[in-house]
């Protein structure tokens, strides 16, 4: 993609940049504690954070289902809300991928390009920009299976996907390993999709649920007490599958652990 933005080349992202916090619509509605943990974490790391009050959504619901023209007004609203900030940070990989790579239904004005080039997913921001090396306030004495969402892994580059040859790395695991007491466990299929897939979860509910159950069961066999991810949408789907099929699994967003906002 020739017009792909390059956040790593951004001049704005540095310690002290004014952050516009984007709380995706489903986190806003169903997981406010994830939004609160993200805000607290950024603030205790010394970041000035604003929450633009008229924000709604990144426009992914329409675009994921093929509706680009239908997404234009939502994309414009997103840019209007966030273009005044040096950087935008969101605790959701799929929304950040949408903003960075697919905010293309509207004219690519300087404001739009600024927003696309300066939007970060939380783990990237902590790992690549702030380069945090300790979370002294966090303590989590449990076995954790980390769920790499497909968007963070294969579109944002959180780690090395299992399909590619090369040196292993994982930004979210590198952060979690700094949390006292935590033990990371690895399922048999470490980065197989959990079956959420946005619109897929309702266009193909049977396959989607089956994948979700398989994913949770794989973590359970690996001994996980918690499944943790940087994408609450995957977790919402997996939690729904686990509770329906009676698998006792708990789910947390990575922000909640890094912020120490859970036991």
């Amino acid at each position: 993609m020739p017009d792909q933005p390059n956040p790593e080349g951004s001049q704005n992202a540095r310690v002290g940049s004014r952050i516009g916090l984007f709380i995706p619509c489903f986190i806003d509605a169903f997981y406010p504690e994830v939004g609160i943990a993200t805000l607290h974490l950024l603030e205790r790391l010394g970041c000035p954070v604003d929450y633009p009050f008229d924000q709604t959504c990144c426009s992914q619901p329409m675009v994921n289902a093929g509706g680009h023209a239908e997404s234009a007004a939502t994309q414009q609203l997103f840019v209007d809300n966030f273009s005044d900030y040096e950087v935008i940070v969101a605790p959701s990989g799929s929304c950040v991928h949408q903003v960075r790579d697919n905010l293309t239904a509207i004219e690519q004005t300087p404001a739009v390009q600024h927003v696309r080039n300066n939007t970060y997913e939380l783990v990237e921001y902590l790992h690549d920009v702030l380069k945090i090396d300790a979370f002294p306030w966090a303590h989590f004495p449990y076995r954790v299976g980390y769920h790499d969402s497909c968007n963070t892994l294969r579109n944002l580059g959180h780690g090395k996907p299992s399909e590619l040859n090369g040196t292993d790395f994982s930004k979210p695991r590198a952060l979690l390993e700094k949390v006292a007491g935590i033990k990371l466990v690895t399922p048999e299929r470490p980065d197989e999709c959990c079956g959420f897939g946005g619109t897929f979860s309702v266009t193909e509910p049977e396959v989607s649920s089956r994948m979700g159950r398989d994913k949770v069961a794989d973590h359970q066999r690996a001994g996980a007490d918690y499944i943790v991810s940087a994408d609450s949408s995957c977790l919402m789907h997996q939690a729904g599958c686990a509770s329906r099929s009676g698998i006792p699994m708990r789910f947390l967003h990575i922000a909640q652990i890094l912020n120490g906002s859970v036991p």
Partner: peptide, 23 residues
């Protein structure tokens, strides 16, 4: 809300999965 609810009714989500709750 997002992706999962664009044109399907609730039963599509809820058939084999529990729904999240509004806190």
């Amino acid at each position: 809300l997002p992706d999962w609810a664009i044109y399907n009714r609730l039963n599509s989500w809820g058939k084999e999965r529990d729904m999240p709750t509004i806190p």
